[in-house]
Amino acid sequence: MSIIKEFKEFAMRGNVIDMAVGVVIGAAFGKIISSLVDDIIMPLVGVATGGMNFTDYKWVIQQAVVDGATKEVLKPEVTLNWGTWIQTIVDFLIVAFCIFVAIKAINQLKRKEKDAPEPEAAPEPTKEEALLTEIRDILKEKEAK
């Protein structure tokens, strides 16, 4: 079997396509959550903490080297951006919580489907109904001949 044919069979499986759709939707969802954290939650946290902007917080490991005469940066500053890291943790916690809530809702729906009573089966026909049905079928056979 050729590699192209094998790849086509692999790529056209339903679960691979479903997974690809999930990845695309997940990426878009991640952008929405990042925007929520960056543009709504963290400014509110900043106001609550006295105007802190977490993305500005960093530990400088090595200062930048700047040419005194031309003010040109010869060697950039080396930093540990712990404020950005905290913001990323908040992103993760919100995404994890949203996924938890979604899975919990799906599991509840599945449980309700399992617990739903089976629809009642049609009652067995009485002896008279069975006899009348048999007679009807015999009469239809005779008419067909």
Results as ranks from 00 to 15, higher is better:
99 I>Q: 02
119 P>K: 13
3 I>C: 13
134 E>I: 09
105 A>Y: 03
119 P>Y: 08
119 P>L: 14
22 G>C: 04
63 Q>Y: 08
7 F>M: 13
38 D>A: 09
38 D>T: 06
76 P>Q: 06
122 A>H: 06
58 K>V: 06
7 F>S: 12
10 F>Q: 09
58 K>H: 08
93 L>D: 05
142 K>D: 05
109 L>W: 01
43 P>Y: 04
44 L>T: 04
21 V>I: 14
33 I>H: 01
29 F>H: 01
110 K>V: 00
49 T>G: 05
114 K>F: 10
3 I>T: 11
123 P>D: 06
76 P>N: 02
57 Y>D: 07
19 M>P: 02
59 W>I: 09
37 V>R: 00
80 L>Q: 11
42 M>I: 01
120 E>N: 11
17 I>M: 10
104 K>V: 03
145 K>L: 12
118 E>W: 14
21 V>M: 10
74 L>P: 01
8 K>I: 09
105 A>W: 07
13 R>Y: 08
9 E>P: 03
122 A>G: 07
107 N>L: 06
100 F>K: 06
23 V>I: 11
133 T>S: 14
96 A>W: 07
48 A>Q: 07
106 I>H: 00
130 A>P: 09
145 K>W: 11
138 I>V: 12
70 T>D: 06
72 E>K: 08
131 L>K: 15
37 V>T: 00
106 I>N: 00
84 T>H: 03
111 R>L: 06
133 T>G: 14
21 V>Q: 08
11 A>N: 12
15 N>W: 14
100 F>V: 03
54 F>V: 02
95 V>P: 00
40 I>E: 04
63 Q>S: 12
59 W>F: 13
103 I>A: 03
117 P>D: 15
73 V>Q: 04
64 A>D: 05
109 L>G: 02
136 R>C: 07
70 T>S: 12
32 I>M: 08
7 F>H: 11
39 D>N: 10
139 L>G: 10
108 Q>H: 09
136 R>K: 14
66 V>L: 05
92 F>G: 01
97 F>C: 13
19 M>T: 10
139 L>N: 14
81 N>D: 10
37 V>C: 04
129 E>A: 11
7 F>V: 09
70 T>E: 05
80 L>N: 06
107 N>D: 05
145 K>P: 01
5 K>L: 13
68 G>R: 10
22 G>W: 02
59 W>C: 05
133 T>I: 15
145 K>Y: 12
126 T>S: 13
20 A>W: 04
119 P>T: 08
114 K>S: 14
49 T>H: 06
33 I>P: 00
94 I>W: 01
115 D>E: 15
128 E>L: 15
120 E>I: 15
104 K>Y: 02
89 I>V: 05
45 V>T: 02
141 E>I: 07
100 F>R: 04
106 I>A: 04
129 E>W: 09
134 E>D: 13
118 E>I: 15
